[in-house]
Nucleic acid binder design. Structure first.
Lengths: 100, 100
DNA sequence: TCTCTTTGCTACTAAATATGTAGCATACTA
DNA sequence: TAGTATGCTACATATTTAGTAGCAAAGAGA
């Protein structure tokens, strides 16, 4: 029995900063340092490792001149963030009601 | 400027094993130990911490008798996994073509 | 040509987080 | 009443991340 596709992407996305980096790349293109700033306290060590993985996974790519962009697959992955975003807004509202 | 809802859920889901635990909870209900086995090498220490966060976030809940289940919000979050799963299958196919 | 910036990225140590194993208290089962 | 399964904690070891400094390459301006 082989690893299901979903398990593979869950593993990849579960690494710290991974989802965030993809999310920040929605504003194509981003330089290495812009990405770092956008994420807050993300060390260059980790960013470099994450970008390497994202490139190998063909989700992001390095642009000729400067900066990084999402590949076509990457952009389609970004589409998944939409329902997540909608869910998150709902979640925030419902939790506010529950609190205090 | 407050934290966007999406950023909050990205932070939560980016913790190691978090996405996986939610995914495994699709087969409601799961005991603590079943969850641990399902995830592979997930230590009880971490599982306990994650479950606490998930309960506070009202995504999972502890069942009276044994085991854990997703809340209503949790089940709706699981819906987001569907487009992710479809994407992942596509991704796996396309990457196979590229390789070797 | 000589600085001054900005780029992507590496090195290295300290801090944070996860693993792995043992085991405890409770509750149910035979 | 001994056995088993439950949720969970403790703690030492291993892995991962943060934080800072800095380098080599590329471009801009004087």
């Amino acid at each position: 029995m082989r690893t299901p596709a979903i398990a593979e992407i869950i593993d990849l996305l579960s690494q710290k900063w991974m989802m965030r980096i993809i999310w920040e790349l929605r504003n194509d293109p981003m330089t290495f340092r812009e990405l770092q700033k956008a994420c807050g306290k993300l060390s260059p060590t980790v960013l470099n490792i994450r970008l390497k993985v994202l490139r190998e996974a063909e989700i992001a790519q390095k642009h000729k001149d400067h900066g990084y962009t999402l590949t076509h697959m990457g952009q389609e992955l970004l589409e998944v963030y939409k329902p997540l975003n909608e869910w998150a807004i709902d979640w925030q509202i419902k939790r506010k009601k529950t609190k205090t």
